[in-house]
Simulated scan of single mutants.
Amino acid sequence: MHLRPIHFADAPFAYADGAVARLAGGMQWFAAYELSEGGRTRVISVADVAGLGGRAAQLHQRFTAPRPPLVLGARTLRFDQPVVAGILNMTPDSFSDGGIHREDPAAAASAGMVMAGAGAGVIDVGGESTRPGAAAVWEEDESRRVVPVIERLAAAGALVSVDTRKALVMERALAAGAAIVNDVSALLWDKRALDVVVRAGCPVIIMHSPDPEKGGHGSGGYRHVVTEVFDWLDARIDVLVAAGIDRAKIIVDPGIGFGKSLQDNLALINGLAMFHGLGCPIMLGASRKRLIGALSNEAPVGERLGGSVALALKGAEAGAQLLRVHDVVETVQALRVWRGLRDRALLG
Rank of each mutant, 00 (worst) to 15 (best):
P281S: 00
R290M: 01
Y222F: 01
G259E: 09
V20D: 03
P82H: 08
G348S: 12
H326Y: 02
D211H: 09
V229Y: 09
D97H: 11
R172D: 06
G26F: 02
W29S: 07
R344D: 13
L335C: 12
D238N: 12
P105W: 04
A31W: 03
H224L: 00
E151W: 10
Q263S: 12
G218I: 04
S161Q: 13
H276I: 02
D246F: 04
K191C: 14
A9T: 12
P12G: 02
A19G: 02
L187K: 02
P66Y: 14
S36Y: 08
A186E: 03
N297C: 14
L233E: 07
D97P: 03
T64H: 10
I206P: 04
V328N: 02
I123D: 04
F8N: 00
L233G: 05
R339L: 14
A267E: 11
D246I: 01
A320L: 08
V239K: 08
V241M: 09
V114M: 15
K191P: 10
L233V: 06
H2Q: 05
H7V: 06
S296L: 11
D183S: 14
D234S: 15
A155S: 13
A19C: 13
L77G: 11
A107C: 06
A74I: 06
Q28C: 14
P300H: 01
L59E: 13
A65C: 09
A248N: 13
A312K: 07
L188R: 14
G38F: 07
N89Y: 05
I206A: 03
V46A: 10
R22A: 10
T130I: 03
I245V: 10
A173F: 04
I282W: 09
D17P: 14
V146S: 10
L284R: 07
L284W: 07
R192T: 12
K166E: 14
G126R: 02
I256C: 05
Y222W: 08
D253E: 08
A136L: 09
R172K: 13
A248V: 10
V71Q: 12
V239S: 06
G133N: 01
L77F: 13
V114Y: 14
S219E: 14
G177V: 14
S261W: 05
S185E: 06
A299S: 05
H217S: 06
L311S: 13
V71K: 11
F63Q: 00
S185G: 05
A158G: 13
A158S: 13
A242P: 09
N270F: 11
Q28D: 15
I206C: 01
N182K: 01
S129K: 01
G121D: 14
A242I: 09
P5F: 01
Y222C: 01
G73T: 12
V325S: 12
P66T: 13
L322N: 03
E128R: 12
A243F: 03
W232V: 09
P148V: 09
R4P: 02
L52C: 12
G216L: 09
R223Y: 01
L59A: 15
D253A: 07
A9C: 14
P12R: 02
V325D: 06
E140I: 11
F63K: 01
S161D: 11
G99R: 02
A312G: 06
G307C: 09
E303S: 05
L153W: 11
D234M: 11
L35K: 15
A108K: 04
A318G: 11
V197E: 08
K214N: 08
M113D: 06
T227H: 07
G121W: 13
K191Q: 15
V181R: 09
A111S: 08
G53K: 03
A167N: 02
R290L: 00
